[in-house]
Structure formats: C-alpha cells, structure tokens
Write a protein that binds this DNA or RNA. Structure first.
Lengths: 160, 160
DNA sequence: TCGGTCTGGTTGAACTCTCAACTGAACATA
DNA sequence: TATGTTCAGTTGAGAGTTCAACCAGACCGA
C-alpha cells in the first residue's frame, strides 16, 4: 500500500479544507437566511424544474443524489411545512409523487438569491475562467471514477 | 442580482455532484471498514501527529475545522470507545487536553490504509499531475475567499 | 393462479451535528 | 478585594442522516 507523499498530502488537505469550509458556509448562509439546510433547498430546486413541479420519489432521489430513506424523511418534513405535498402515482400503486406547492415555490424564490450570491461570491468570483474550465474537467474525472462504486452501492443496498 | 448562466450551472452542478459522491464514498468506506465517520478519523489523525499525541481541545478544533461543540461531543464518544482520554491542562484550569490512547492509535493504524487507498483511487489516480496542480490552486483560492467569512463567524459565535 | 422474488417507499432507532444556554476559570479594572 | 467581561469547554434539545427492518404492490416462472 502506498501512502500519500508530501505533495499529495498538501493537495489533499488543501482540498478537503476548502470543500469543508465552502459547504459549511453555504449551509450556514441558507439556514440563517431561509431556515433550511442545503439538502432541502436542492429538493425544492429539483421539483421546481420538473414538469408540473412534480417527481416520483425515486426520480427525485436520483436527481438529488440522495438515499431513498433520507429523501423520505426530508419530504415528510417539507410536507409538514406545506412546501411539498405527496400524491399517489396513478401508474404504479407503490409509487408516490412529490409536488412543489405554491408556498414551496415562493419560499424557494425567497431563498435562491442569497444562495446563488454565496455561490457566486465564493466560487465563480474567486476563480479565473481557466480555473473554472479546469474545475469542470476535474469534477467530471472524479465523478467518472466513482461510477463503479455508486453502481455497486446501488446494487448492494438498493439505495441512491 | 446575477443568476448563473448555462456554463456556470453546468460547472456548479458538476462540482457539487462530484464532491457529494466523493465524500459520501469516503464516509461509507470508513464507516463500513472501521466503524467510524470521517470526522472522527480526522480527530484521531490530528492527535496522532501532535507532540505526545495530545492537543488542547481548542487547538484540536482549529486543526479539524470543527466547532467546539461538535468536537466536545465527538471526543466524548471517542473517550467512551477508549480511543482518546481527556486530562486536565496544567497551565490553564479551564483547559482540557485530549490524548490519543494506544488503543486509539491501533484503531487508527487499522483504518488508515483503507482510507488512504480510497483517497488515492478516487482522487490521485483519476487526475493528471497538471490537474492536481490546478486543484491545489483552486482550493487555495476558494479557501482564501472564505477567510473573511470564517473570521466573522469566529467573532460572532466564538466557534471554530 | 400460486408462490417467490424484486421494487418503491416508509418507518423507528441510533447516531451525528447545530444551536443556544450554561459552568467555571482567567483577566481586567476600579 | 469586588465586579464585570471574556474565554474554554460542556451540555441538552432539536434537527438531519444512516441503517436495517418492514409493508405492499409489481413481476415472473411453474
């Protein structure tokens, strides 16, 4: 087994530090200004972009990179807030369809500007166009390298 | 306020997707193979690298980019496992020093190879040297752009 | 049509994290 | 020495996540 050498360690720690701080900042901003965690925001976004502002739970889980369980709990909470409602799936009686309510849409409209601003300020404004191109490639490479794993998890646990 | 354009959205989503999948993979691997979340692993690493394998709680929080509260809960758990113990700080009676036990060190030795392998497989092995250099710069830029925010949070909440 | 298996989704318990409140010690000032 | 403030760390409650167990409907071969 090969350890990380000094260069690799520096890169690794720099990367995790940046990602940790960045995601925590976004989470804190959204929680403070709109009272919801990023995970819930992403559910609302996914629904808002779907036809009829609705998606089956399994589709939604896929889009949000969320486990079924997590999504189920989250949608339960969002439903209690009145931002989402669930309705039966006509074609498959096992299925359940999450629908973004008007109130949910309004909340999303209120939350989006602050969130987008935070993303812009701390990602797009601090990187050069060249670095952004590079970041896209890097993301794609990491994602691709993870395909196998995720498929395996899906197979083993019926998750994702 | 400026929304993200199509290019920016593609980059943004690619980035969050990659980061989410990557960190979840690491967390799952460590939890499955060594029964601990990455956050706890990082505490053990930080202690193992400190002189006498010990650090004051506040130092440890700083190194781990963790809030005092989170760290306190985490160390309580690690103490219950017998991987860490707390002792009084001689120079400041408010202080508390976390010490990595031999058992804790052994657990870390057992967990490290799998974790490092996962990091290598899904980060260093999928990126070119050029991309790694670029990633380091990108991380540094993001981190730097967040300095102000973190200082502000520190000031407001006495956290970090 | 029956039984077995797979799939979509939910649930509860255990765990981790966050936030705010709190304790006790240090420090500064009068 | 008394008082107010700051600092280190802990605690408990509430919120979100994970994991495993579960239910019910769909699917499939005999």
């Amino acid at each position: 087994m090969r350890w990380l050498n000094a260069d690799e360690q520096r890169i690794w720690r720099g990367f995790t530090t940046a990602v940790t701080k960045f995601t925590e900042h976004l989470d804190r901003q959204l929680q403070r200004d709109s009272g919801m965690p990023v995970a819930y925001y992403e559910i609302l976004v996914a629904l808002s972009e779907a036809p009829d502002r609705s998606l089956r739970m399994s589709e939604l889980a896929l889009v949000c990179h969320s486990s079924r369980s997590r999504l189920s709990h989250a949608v339960a909470k969002l439903e209690k807030e009145g931002w989402v409602r669930r309705q039966a799936c006509p074609s498959d009686r096992r299925g359940s369809i999450a629908v973004l309510t008007d109130r949910g849409y309004a909340v999303l409209e209120g939350a989006a500007p602050g969130h987008v601003t935070a993303v812009r300020e701390h990602l797009f404004d601090v990187l050069t166009p060249e670095q952004l191109r590079s970041l896209e490639e890097i993301s794609r490479a990491i994602d691709k390298g993870l395909q196998g794993e995720c498929a395996q998890v899906r197979a083993e646990l019926g998750e994702f």
